[in-house]
Every structure is written in structure tokens, then in C-alpha cells.
Nucleic acid binder design. Structure first.
Ligand code: FES
Ligand code: FES
Lengths: 143, 143
DNA sequence: AGTATACCCTAGTAAAATTGTCAACTATTC
DNA sequence: GAATAGTTGACAATTTTACTAGGGTATACT
């Protein structure tokens, strides 16, 4: 398992906000009950996204959460990194030099894995998810 | 962080065995001191690899570990999965149906991430690592 | 035969990460 | 001012990680 619930829940929530982009704030309760996620826990995840500038909030009655930018400007990678930290297979890749060996055979592998992951998450925008989803939903209706 | 020390240490050990393929068994102590890994801990990792048929052992004096197959027949993915379990971003992808939604927008993302990872680890063999390493070592010498 | 070497196996365990829960507080609307 | 809804910090249960400890077994060498 590569992603914890933090990344998985948080991405679902971000997708939900993208789905409702432009339609006013969505309350925590709405999201948590739709996806069956603990309310208080999801709150903490959304707080992280807010502190990093991806979502905005409106307090009080009829308040809730909303994307701070267009769905076309937020990548899946931004969301996942905000929640899970760097998406690296090994610490060595982010900053620190390999401890023991000057030339490390496994490092090359880790770099490639990282590249493979980044390639997906940095090139998929929340907007893409919304479009893809509406296409799938339409096809499901046609059956 | 995607891989734990299990996968990272285990892959290093497997690489070391690939490096010595055909040259008799390599002792635990040799590997653990070369890579600065706890002996008893590494033993447990190698036990997993043995139980899944990737390495063989010779007991007694001058004994040690050796690959059970050619380095060209063992992928990085085999090693990592033996140690870490399925390399999936989300449980949903391995067997279980998505719980809440019939059509899940994030599932597509997880599938692509998984595909990206598998693409690397299933197409890289220990033999490739050895060749790549010897090339890098030669280049380093020429400087 | 005896001893040193080296793998085998199980149990335990401290620390960290994960996955939440709880409760008091603040802001907004009606 | 009552109801709604986000904010914050503390904290607790559970699981995973990364080991450690120690006895057991097989082999080689003398
Ligand atoms: S020791 Fe850092 S990647 Fe090898
Ligand atoms: S609920 Fe399983 S991938 Fe979405």
C-alpha cells in the first residue's frame, strides 16, 4: 500500500470540490457522509489543503469548503503531496546523499519509480478527473 | 515514502547476490556489513525471499545465500512484492470492490499510478541492475 | 568427535505512524 | 441569540516498522 487514507480520502474530497466548482461552498458533512469518511478526520485533511492554499473556506451557516483555484490548475500531485508529503520511494532521493555507497545500484530504480509516479500525478488535473467522470457517468446511463 | 526499509534493504541484498551470481554463497554478515544493515533484521528479509523461492541457502561453514534463479529471470517487482506485499496505491485495486460508489473517480488515478510503478519494477531485472552498475563503475574509473 | 561457522525460527518490543475521536472555540447567517 | 459550520489542539487506539534476543540446526574442518 502506497497511499494512506490521508491521500485517498483527501483526493476524493478534492475531487468532490472540483465537481462543485463555481457552485458555492460544500459542507464537511456533505462530503464525509457521501464518501463515508469520519467527519473530524476529514476536517484535518482539509485543513492541510487549506493551509497550503488549495482550498478556501466559508464559515457559518451555509458555509463549507471550495477550491481556491480552478480545477484545471490543481494537479493530483499537489493534493497528494500536501497530504502525504513527498511521493518518493526512498529518502535518499530527496536531498540526503546515499550513506554507504558512493554509487548505489538501487538508487537508479528508485529514481525511475519516482519518475513513473510523478508522471501520472503531475499530469492529471482535478479538471481531468471531472471530465473523465462525467463521461463515464454518461456511458453508464446509456446502458 | 513509498518503500519501507524492508523493500529497500531487501533489494540491495538481492542485488548483491546478483552481483555474486555463480560465485558461491554470500554470507549474511558480508551483506549486512557491506550495506550497514542489522544482521538479524536482514535475515528475516532474506527468509521471506527464500520462502518465495527467489534465493537458496547453504548452511554451515562457508555457507550463505545465493539466487535461486538467474539474475535475468528475477525482476525488481518480484523482490519488492515478496517483501512489501502488493505494490498498490489503494486496497480497492486488489480484489475488493469499491465500497461506496459504483463509479469512483479516484480509482482511475490509482490504477494509473499502479501501472506506472509496475511498468518500472516488472521490466527491470536484477541482471539489468548488475549491467548498469558495472557500466557506472567503469565510467567512474575513467575520470 | 568436537568446535566454530552460518543459516533457521520464534518471540518480544520500543518507537513511530496511522487513523482516528473529543471538546471547546470562533465566525456567520437567519 | 440560536443554529450552523469551520478551527484548533489534545489525545488515544491500533498497526506497522525496525529491530533485538536467543535457542536450534546443519555443515565443514581439524
Ligand atoms: S543508499 Fe540511497 S539510494 Fe542507495
Ligand atoms: S472506493 Fe475504491 S478506488 Fe474508489
Amino acid at each position: 500500500m502506497i497511499l494512506s487514507t490521508k491521500g485517498r480520502y483527501g483526493l476524493k474530497a478534492a475531487f468532490e470540490l472540483a465537481l462543485n466548482y463555481g457552485g458555492g461552498p460544500v459542507s464537511l458533512k456533505t462530503i464525509s457522509s457521501k464518501y463515508n469518511i469520519s467527519e473530524n478526520y476529514l476536517e484535518q485533511l482539509l485543513a492541510k489543503l487549506r493551509k497550503q492554499g488549495f482550498i478556501e473556506t466559508v464559515r457559518g451557516v451555509n458555509g463549507g469548503y471550495m477550491l481556491a483555484r480552478k480545477p484545471e490548475e490543481i494537479t493530483v500531485g499537489m493534493i497528494l503531496r500536501a497530504l502525504e508529503g513527498e511521493m518518493t520511494p526512498s529518502d535518499c532521493l530527496s536531498g540526503d546523499v546515499c550513506t554507504r555507497e558512493s554509487v548505489c545500484a538501487t538508487r537508479v530504480i528508485f529514481e525511475q519509480i519516482e519518475k513513473g509516479i510523478n508522471n501520472v500525478i503531475d499530469n492529471t488535473y482535478l479538471g481531468d478527473m471531472v471530465r473523465q467522470n462525467s463521461k463515464v457517468m454518461q456511458e453508464a446511463k446509456l446502458l
